[in-house]
Write a protein that binds this DNA or RNA. Structure first.
Length: 925
RNA sequence: GCGAACGUAGCUCAGCGGUAGAGCACUGCCUUCACACGGCAGGGGUCACAGGUUCAAUCCCUGUCGUUCGCACCA
């Protein structure tokens, strides 16, 4: 049999196994299969991106699910793809051009798009190659790009359909405008940040010359676009002025070839104004503020746009034209001050919208844009979540989703970019009408003119993303893939794109497929650094997952995430924890090394994985570990069903490390080093089968090391990745060999060994020192068990002579520990000195006194201290129990088994204290 | 401003009506024939605070303080 190398070389094994998986076609899904389908759509990473920890977390979860379902016999499809990421990609290419002293406008649209495609051809695969390093088992042959012809066809069909329905429209609106990018962005792409600013109080002279109104503003430069001032209709201070005019400071009316004239703007009244804020007078700038826009519409005010597309002031700003917003603000304030129109300046904290892409301050900007009407689309999307057709996990996000849906505004989908799906709308130069069509039209559908020009803008990248669950599967064609895999099963993504993406997929899926795109949404949090800060380039605290994979292995990284994802919470990443899981990989590797060594002369049975050891020949340890394996399989399955990855991973971690390695392997050493026998062979078979299951159970979490180990196991099927995932139903025959009685037995053995070790440890008896132990069992059952396991206990406790008997003799100079085992209370660990907790208080119990003569070994004072400590602990317990049980109401009202359990515990504790006191007096005698 | 989540061991987090758990870190002992990326043993918490419900509250309710997130936004 092939043995394992001393060290697991993850770099080599990961590359080799991944290549093999791909060559074998294990990731491929089947469009026509009798197996049940299971599909996850990968949130398409940006082609410009490189793998970051957020992806790694997201994809670890998805791959774990896919691998788990694949092993469970599902026809799994993990559908990969990449996103053209309009703004990012365009920015990247523009930066390249800049190095060559070129601009996008300079080379023109066509050349620019060529350049961008070229860039995509060269760099677009980077992130998917990086995903492979993580072990992602996507069906790569199906990889889709959002600008592929097929997807573009879907986009056009959706656009045309919504347009015909009147749900897509074009209009002049106030939109969020990014100056550096020179494009509109959607509400969602605006991030509000608190900024320390000022509230300036400005005097607006009354037209009638009888003084002035004071207007408070945080943006004095927008004064240049004011077309009214507004007060509350009930405001006694200003009622008299409503309907009259004020003179707009600074600006003169720009009438060509006419003498400068002061601009008059009306004083209007609207209950929108808060009388208590500022001066109670608000300036209205309808073209540069969302609230003012509404007032402007309502009161039919003129809209004066004072900005250019680069957000510098335009000709309407008169002498301020050409200045940036910041410069204009400064100048306006200076000028106001010079004219004594500035009443005062107060510090003021305000929320300012920033462009999530460029970081620039977003300007409300009046322009022609395309919008998707949201009201009708939102209704069904709201309903499917309310009704539970789509389940959102964690549940608290359901409310967030529903709230957003209820206040949703129309979606601005046009972007003044070149890289993306160009809007399929053509303007007729002759009749000025719009033709919207799936295929490029040659003539105007209104007047037949061929004088058409296509809209210059492209669609918001999220528009194509919204179609992703069905466009990737072939829609609008009724493909087999679509029939098989739509609706998909689970959508896994960060909670930051719930609105951007998840909500819109739900709307589009319902509209165009008449069914939800997925039934389950699994949201996780964001990755943060160890101090809880966002990882970002500017902070320089980003960690490259590829560096971590290189250093610790992909498996360790995956497990770090999976062992720690909890219900949508942000994840503070720490390399130290990763190191811990790397150590676990090492542990698994070495445990396998031990096992393979112990199985060198093992005869591999014909039946392979189905081979069962003879029940009569396997040891209690074997029966116990199988019993625990069954429990682990059960718990892991239940946890995965409920997406509790951390619980599943935790169960496997502790089962493998603390039961299999710490105890089972130790127990087994004596059998395996003994001469061949039927018992030894049976134990070898058990070891081989249990290890086989452990490896398969771990596979979805840590695929590389498990595949590597699996190939070396004596008992195995072809490949771990496609082997069956063990669960208590499919694995019933083997698990039936596990015995609860054996578990109790082993618990007692563990308890005694721990008690001996505890005495050793606390008394600082060096491991080399010989000790003698006397065990006094409380009953025959315990006595029998102890007799059978005597050799193992001696080995693990490093005991020289080991006596079992009723006669305690003299306890003089002896250490004493008490071990209790509750029969029928499996699962609780047995601890020396009575740490045992009754589970339900049913069944009986065995107790054992462990006596270690200390004469000549140590200073007896240490042992006295140890016993005092134990008694103190027990006394505290007793006090609590007595207090409780002497409370009539407790006895009367509490559940029967609680009261009974307490009584039992009290009795036991009292007995233990008595024993310990007795031994204390003898120890001191 | 509205809504939500969270405040538990030094750190990161589980638990959520019956006497506090894990990992890492820490202390002591040990190079025992799978593993020092290891073994064994151990120390450490009035479960933010104040009330209430209950026989019983870290867990349920109310309030306070603190942290974070989402939404809205007042010029």
């Amino acid at each position: 049999m092939e043995l394992l190398s001393d060290r697991y070389n993850h770099q080599e094994a990961e590359a080799r196994n991944y290549r093999w998986w791909e060559e074998q076609g294990f990731f491929k899904a089947d469009d026509r299969s009798t197996k049940p389908p299971y599909c996850i759509i990968l949130p398409p990473p940006n082609v410009t991106g490189s793998l970051h920890l957020g992806h790694a977390l997201d994809q670890s979860i998805q791959d774990c699910l896919i691998r788990w379902k694949r092993m469970n016999g599902f026809n799994t499809l993990w559908q990969p793809g990449t996103d053209h990421a309009g703004i990012s990609t365009q920015t990247v290419v523009e930066k390249e051009l800049k190095k060559e002293k070129l601009t996008r406008q300079g080379i023109g649209r066509e050349k620019f798009l060529q350049r961008t495609w070229e860039w995509k051809r060269l760099n677009g695969d980077r992130i998917t190659l990086q995903m492979r390093r993580l072990g992602a088992s996507c069906d790569w042959d199906r990889a889709v790009f959002t600008l592929d012809d097929r997807v573009s066809a879907a986009v056009r069909k959706v656009f045309v359909s919504l347009f015909r329905k009147g749900w897509i429209y074009r209009g002049q609106r106030l939109v969020n405008w990014s100056g550096p990018l020179q494009t509109a962005i959607s509400d969602l792409e605006v991030e509000y940040k608190q900024v320390k600013g000022s509230l300036w109080h400005i005097r607006y002279p009354l037209e009638n010359g009888r003084g002035h109104l004071i207007v408070a503003t945080t943006r004095p430069e927008t004064l240049l676009g004011d077309t009214a001032v507004c007060v509350h209709p009930q405001d006694e201070r200003y009622k008299q002025w409503v309907g009259q005019n004020v003179i707009l400071p600074l600006l003169t009316k720009s009438v060509p070839s006419a003498p400068p004239q002061k601009r008059k703007i009306p004083i209007i009244a609207d209950s929108y104004v808060d009388m208590k804020f500022g001066s109670g007078v608000v300036k209205i700038t309808p073209a540069h503020d969302f609230n003012d826009y509404k007032i402007g519409k309502k009161h039919n005010l003129p809209f004066i746009n004072i900005l250019d597309t680069n957000t510098f002031l335009n000709e309407h700003a008169g002498p301020y034209a050409g200045l940036s917003v910041t410069e204009a603000r400064k100048k306006v304030l200076e000028d106001l001050k010079a004219q004594d129109l500035l009443e005062k300046e107060e510090p003021h904290v305000l929320n300012v919208g920033h462009c999530s892409r460029s970081g620039a301050v977003v300007e409300p900007f009046l322009s022609e844009q395309w919008f998707v009407k949201m009201d009708q689309l939102a209704v069904p999307a709201q309903r499917v979540v309310e009704s539970g057709t789509i389940n959102i996990d964690p549940e608290s996000w359901t409310k967030v989703y529903l709230h957003w849906m209820s206040i949703i505004e129309d979606w601005c989908i046009s972007r003044q970019l070149w890289w993306g799906h160009r809007i399929p709308a053509w303007y007729c130069k002759d009749c000025q009408q719009i033709t919207v069509a799936e295929k490029d039209p040659t003539s105007c559908e209104h007047c037949g003119s061929g004088n058409l020009t296509q809209d210059e803008d492209v669609l918001d990248t999220w528009f194509s993303s919204a179609l992703w669950p069905f466009s990737t599967l072939g829609w609008p064609e009724e493909t087999e893939a679509l029939k098989t895999f739509y609706p998909t099963n689970v959508l896994v993504t960060g909670n930051d794109i719930l609105f951007f993406w998840v909500a819109r997929m739900v709307m589009m899926g319902l509209e165009f497929k008449r069914d939800v795109p997925f039934r389950q949404v699994l949201l996780h949090g964001m990755i943060r650094d160890s101090q809880g800060r966002k990882m970002s380039k500017s902070l320089g605290n980003g960690i490259d997952p590829l560096d971590l994979i290189e250093k610790y292995g992909a498996d360790a990284l995956r497990l770090t995430f999976l062992a720690h994802v909890h219900a949508g919470k942000d994840y503070k990443f720490s390399e130290q924890r990763l190191e811990g899981y790397r150590n676990f990989m090492n542990k698994i590797w070495n445990a396998t090394r031990f096992a393979l060594n112990a199985l060198q002369d093992f005869q591999v049975p014909e039946a392979g994985v189905q081979a069962l050891p003879n029940r009569a020949q396997i040891s209690s340890y074997d029966q116990w570990i199988i019993y625990r394996l069954a429990q682990a399989e059960d718990r892991v399955e239940e946890a995965l069903e409920e997406f509790r990855f951390a619980d599943a991973a935790g169960e496997l971690y502790s089962f493998v490390w603390y039961e299999f390695c710490d105890w089972y392997i130790e127990f087994s050493k004596s059998v395996f080093s003994s001469p061949p026998s039927e018992e030894r062979s049976a134990s070898q078979l058990t070891m081989a089968q249990v290890l086989n299951r452990i490896v398969r159970l771990l596979h979805p979490f840590v695929p590389f090391i498990t595949e590597e180990i699996y190939s070396k196991l004596p008992i195995k099927n072809k490949a771990c990745i496609v082997d069956e995932y063990p669960n208590i139903r499919t694995d019933r025959a083997f698990l039936a060999l596990g015995q609860e009685a054996a578990a109790v037995e082993v618990d007692l053995v563990k308890g005694i060994v721990s008690a001996i070790r505890n005495i050793r440890g606390e008394n600082r008896i060096p491991p080399a020192a010989r000790i003698n132990v006397r065990i006094v069992p409380s009953d025959e059952h315990a006595q029998k068990i102890i007799g059978e396991h005597r050799a193992v206990m001696m080995a693990l406790g490093r005991v020289d002579t080991f006596e079992i008997g009723e006669d305690e003799g003299s306890l003089s100079k002896c250490a004493l520990s008490l071990v209790n085992v509750q029969v029928g209370a499996f699962g609780t660990s047995t601890v020396g000195d009575g740490g045992q907790v009754a589970a339900g208080g049913i069944s009986g119990q065995s107790s054992v006194r462990v006596i270690v003569p200390l004469q000549g070994l140590v200073d007896i004072d240490e042992e006295i201290k140890r016993i005092h400590k134990t008694i103190e602990k027990l006394d505290k317990d007793i006090a609590i129990l007595v207090g409780r049980l002497s409370n009539e109401n407790f006895v009367k009202n509490a559940a029967e088994e609680i009261v009974h359990g307490d009584r039992q515990q009290l009795e036991q504790a009292k007995k233990q204290v008595q024993d310990l006191r007795e031994s204390l007096t003898r120890l001191q005698s």
